[in-house]
Design a protein around this nucleic acid. Structure first.
Lengths: 342, 342
DNA sequence: TAGTATATCGCAATCGATTGCAAGAATAAA
DNA sequence: TTTATTCTTGCAATCGATTGCGATATACTA
């Protein structure tokens, strides 16, 4: 690597006729070293262009001051908000953050987990991928008692702090809102069944319908991976259904967008004929026409909270905390795609 | 950290009555060790749940097999595409990638650079932030001959491979297109002057006007940070200008969106009264109404290319390559916001 | 059978920093 | 002046893996 010779604490020590220990302690501002020496060392270190080799320090201290983050896709507004929240807290507390994306692939998630472990991150914050249904790759961390914090897409089988959004409440309020706009045949396009978050959104949908005395019609419910393409397929199918929906509650905004585009292209008015609500408050949901009603999730706050929890555990390693699941509130944002009454 | 004792090659060695060297070599599939021993070691290592400590290996080998990536914002479609491209190539070649975002802040960029250096990444790929105008924080890398590859927002002062998009061509074609739609008073909202990319987009705009025999009107040119808010301010100012624009070429899509929203809200038709073209092909540009004409940049390809270049340099450390600047083609995507003639 | 070549494997140094323990110097107390 | 304290600093082990070189053991050649 270094073409220029690497400058180490030993070089500084030699130059000053001190020992490496003294140099090391000085650089850490250890008060057992006299202030004069400390300042001298720091000045010379600076002059010599000394750069600590964190690898060496980490190896010795068995701490990396690094938090690993695994998200399905950094490209999603929600996830990048969470990341920003994590970074803010982490940096302020002297931790570095390394971000990896699993692309929702189980295999990649495993590889990332291995890599993070091999690099001895002090803790990891993660939201599991859509494909993931086994958790063997996470045993690594639980066995070695490396703190984990799950957010959004959590898994029940592992004991750890979990931060979720109130998916149930979001689903409930979204559906309730559609009902309040006069819809009677409310379809639902949900995500894969292995993920709690989608299950909860659907549960909210069910309960809202029940509470309003509307019978659940299974033919109006479709599950897919919530992509743009699958969303279009889903709405095609829904509109061919014997019972035609007059509203759709989509488990994400992307699907909502697919639905809206398809409907408009086929001369079906939104929200008049079919009202639509999405989920996540992606940036585009505000700027498309009609703007999409959706459920806002406090991503940044979740990230901050996650970082706090993980750092807390990293610092107080010995005692096992009482693991808790924090439910963050969601907020219904009513926009044009579902506003029939003015 | 590890509550369970860490299993090292020494533990394996002891159990098998071998030396750590043999274990190390076996795990690396070094042919100097007999196949029988190699397999035995690997089996036992697996059984014992051995996990290599990469920190130790990296310290010894002086290589981390890690590429650092600094981008202004991971949240931007263009940047996350680049990251995906980088990751794809890097993973396939056995490199890890650590991603950091500078939030366009100079200070954070410096800190990240320091951290990446201290962690001894083998090379870095970066796009500098909007605020950045000094490059002292990158001297670290050039002094120690750690390969760097710049993309998109590059700096002239450093010798390194650079991958840029054809901003000039993009600006030229965008403007040319607006002219072809019958516009005569074409405004431009550009980015900060310290960034080449915006300068080049503007140059393309100038030349397209010149080539069409249209005189450049400075009052129709505004520079800002290209945010949503600044975009609105800019269009307000433009529409109060004595010479009213009948088209706007914006240096990014966000600004184009601000412009369109403002115009529509004020009863000005897009594209009939004012045609608009953006830059970057953000996902939302396709789905808003009217859809935004824009310049597409091959982010994924750039990422792949950047990763290839950096890995090449990392592997062939000794010889200094002939640094080149690769210009990736841009593509004009014509959508509704600028299509007057059908 | 002696001598040489080859296949296997171990010793020990090394990467750069940290840290418990001890030693020497300086200062204070007796 | 002697003893006890307090300050400073150094010694040397350590973190876990890698690797040049040397040492055996085995196979092969003459």
């Amino acid at each position: 690597m270094a073409n220029q010779p690497e400058i180490t604490i030993h070089d500084i020590a030699k130059k000053l006729n001190l020992s490496a220990s003294t140099v090391s302690r000085s650089l850490q501002d250890n008060p057992v070293i006299s202030e004069a020496t400390r300042n001298l060392v720091k000045r010379i270190a600076d002059e010599m262009g000394y750069r600590p080799n964190i690898l060496a320090a980490n190896l010795r201290t068995r701490r990396t001051n690094t938090i690993g983050v695994i998200v399905p896709l950094i490209n999603r507004h929600f996830f990048s908000s969470v990341i920003s929240g994590i970074e803010e807290v982490a940096y302020s507390r002297g931790f570095a953050v390394t971000i990896s994306q699993s692309n929702d692939k189980h295999e990649k998630e495993c590889k990332i987990a291995q890599a993070l472990f091999a690099n001895r991150v002090d803790g990891i914050i993660l939201s599991i991928g859509m494909e993931t249904n086994t958790i063997d790759h996470l045993k690594l961390f639980s066995e070695r008692k490396i703190p984990m914090v799950f957010f959004d897409r959590v898994v029940d089988e592992i004991k750890a702090h979990k931060i979720v959004v109130d998916d149930y409440g979001g689903g409930y309020r979204a559906t309730q809102h559609l009902i309040s706009q006069g819809s009677k045949f409310i379809a639902h396009i949900g995500g894969p069944g292995n993920l709690k978050i989608y299950e909860n959104r659907e549960k909210g949908y069910f309960d809202a319908l029940n509470d309003a005395g509307i019978k659940i019609d299974k033919s109006l419910i479709i599950h897919n991976n919530l992509s743009r393409e699958e969303g279009t397929k889903a709405v095609v199918k829904l509109m061919q259904n014997p019972v035609k929906p007059d509203a759709v509650f989509c488990a994400n905004d992307t699907t909502a967008l697919s639905v809206i585009i398809y409907l408009l292209e086929n001369g079906i008015k939104v929200p008049e004929d079919v009202a639509v609500v999405g989920f996540s408050n992606e940036p585009f949901s505000e700027v498309v026409t009609p703007s999409i009603s959706t459920i806002k999730q406090p991503g940044f706050l979740m990230g901050q909270k996650a970082a706090q929890l993980i750092i807390q555990q990293i610092i107080h390693q010995k005692e096992e905390p009482e693991y808790k699941t924090i439910v963050m509130p969601t907020e219904l944002i009513i926009r044009k795609s579902s506003s029939r009454k003015q």
